[in-house]
Write a protein that binds this DNA or RNA. Structure first.
Length: 231
DNA sequence: CACCAGATGTGCT
DNA sequence: GCACATCTGGTGT
């Protein structure tokens, strides 16, 4: 029985140059591996979310970090596919995306959850608070922590050492979809149901709707007052 | 299950 | 300057 050869890194990059929303189901079941000085950890992805860029005029994505254009932080999202976009949030967490789409088009898949399939001991050391093996990478910041990723890894190529990405040979299982987690405003609505997960997988993070923030009151400048910059 | 403190980079004003 | 954040873990009901 001939098995089609696994795509090499550049073929994989070609695949990843597609639309993140179409790629999401293919990435479910894929394995991302990171080898560090401390050892290797690999995660089989079970939950991802697509984020698009401002250039998608049909469906500009108000939930995306790129909605208001390029900045120093989101620059990797505008770069070539197959690279990592890692950002820091809530004062103590990192989240990891794999960049999709051709260079110049900002889109990515946020890695929300997975199953640690290699380096469970190291992942446990990195995540001492996890009580069960299924908790090790069950959430975007948990997944980044288990893989040992920080903003220092943002922009690095996920398809070259010390990283590796392997797609599943075929569909990994039934895929469900729904609104994205933690995205406030319209970007978190059913209209942007760009969260995808393997139906019934125990490592998928528990759904939590975005916290509804009462629009913070921004005092209007009193009439007659002017603002000017220090210099 | 609900609620909430934590702690700081980032981008808008 | 300051509000917000693609979240997590702990506590209490």
């Amino acid at each position: 029985m001939d098995v089609p050869p696994a795509p090499d890194a550049e073929q994989l990059r070609g695949i990843l140059s597609g639309d993140a929303r179409d790629l999401a189901p293919q990435l479910l079941g894929a394995v991302l591996r990171h080898e560090s000085r401390d050892g290797a950890v690999a995660v089989r992805l079970t939950e991802v979310e697509a984020y698009m860029g401002p250039e998608d005029s049909l469906h500009p994505d108000p939930g995306s970090h790129t909605y208001r254009g390029p900045t120093a932080r989101n620059a990797p999202m505008f770069g070539p596919p197959g690279h990592l976009y890692v950002y820091f949030t809530y004062g103590m967490h990192h989240c990891t995306n794999i960049v999709c789409g051709p260079a110049g088009a900002a889109s990515a898949l946020l890695l929300r959850a997975g199953e640690v399939v290699e380096g469970v001991e190291l992942a446990r050391l990195r995540r001492p608070t996890s009580k069960h093996r299924s908790d090790l990478a069950s959430g975007p910041a948990r997944l980044a922590k288990a893989l040992g990723l920080t903003t220092a890894d943002s922009g690095r190529d996920a398809l070259a050492p010390p990283f590796a990405l392997v797609l599943p040979p075929g569909p990994a299982g039934d895929v469900s979809s729904g609104p994205r987690v933690g995205v406030s405003g319209a970007g978190g609505s059913e209209e942007y149901a760009w969260r995808f997960w393997l139906t019934g997988d125990p490592t998928v993070s528990r759904y939590k709707p975005a916290v509804q923030r009462p629009r913070k009151h921004r005092p209007a400048p009193a009439p007659g007052t002017a603002r000017f910059h220090q210099r």
